[in-house]
Amino acid sequence: MDLEECIQITDSTLNYLANFCPNISALTLSHCELITDEGIRHIGHSACATEQLRILELDNCPLITDASLDYLTGCQNLEQIELYDCQLIIKAAIRRLRTRLPNIKVHAYFAPVTPPPAISNGRERYCKCCVIL
């Protein structure tokens, strides 16, 4: 089920899916910016998650946190999760998920740490890979 960029998707929607759609094997919720950990909790504790769900895409869901990954640890058939640009999820939470689901493929991106405004020679530096000459 591909719900990417459906801006009206909420935790209530995910509760409905969890209760009435037990055969979802792939769920794309990328760019559904209203969903929170509560919505992922509904999915994680549903019949589809424990038996069918294999792929979950959560790219750019700014309100989900590490708690969402904890809710997914019972999804024994989960093979892949996408977490690009989920800024409230930290690497330790991903490690915990991998401990519980050792075969899962996690695709995540963590932006590099922002460098200080100036380096020792006084020149401003905008990112780790660029030096302004």
Rank of each mutant, 00 (worst) to 15 (best):
H42G: 03
A26H: 14
N19S: 13
A26N: 14
F20L: 07
I35N: 03
L27P: 04
E33L: 01
L29R: 05
A49R: 06
N15A: 14
T28N: 15
D37E: 04
I24P: 09
A49H: 05
R41Y: 13
C32D: 06
E38R: 07
T10Q: 08
S25N: 10
L29I: 11
S46T: 01
T13L: 03
D37I: 08
A49E: 03
L17T: 10
L34D: 07
T36S: 15
S12D: 15
I43N: 06
E51S: 15
E51T: 10
S25D: 10
N19D: 13
A47E: 14
C21E: 11
C48F: 12
A47C: 08
T36G: 08
L17Q: 06
N15V: 05
P22G: 08
H42T: 03
G44K: 07
Y16P: 02
T36W: 07
E33I: 14
I24R: 07
T36R: 06
I40C: 06
Y16W: 11
G39S: 13
A18V: 02
S12G: 13
A18Y: 06
I43T: 00
H31F: 15
G39T: 01
T13A: 13
A18P: 02
Q52S: 11
S30E: 10
G44R: 05
I35A: 01
E51M: 11
S30Q: 10
Q52A: 07
H31T: 09
Q52F: 04
E33N: 08
F20M: 04
A26I: 12
A47W: 09
L34I: 02
I24H: 09
R41C: 09
N15D: 13
A26P: 10
D37R: 05
L34E: 10
I35F: 01
G39I: 02
S30I: 08
L27Q: 07
P22C: 09
N19M: 11
H45E: 05
S46L: 00
T10R: 11
H31L: 12
Y16R: 04
A18N: 05
E33H: 01
C21A: 12
A47F: 10
C21G: 00
S25C: 11
I43R: 01
S12Y: 14
C32I: 00
H45G: 14
N23G: 03
S46N: 00
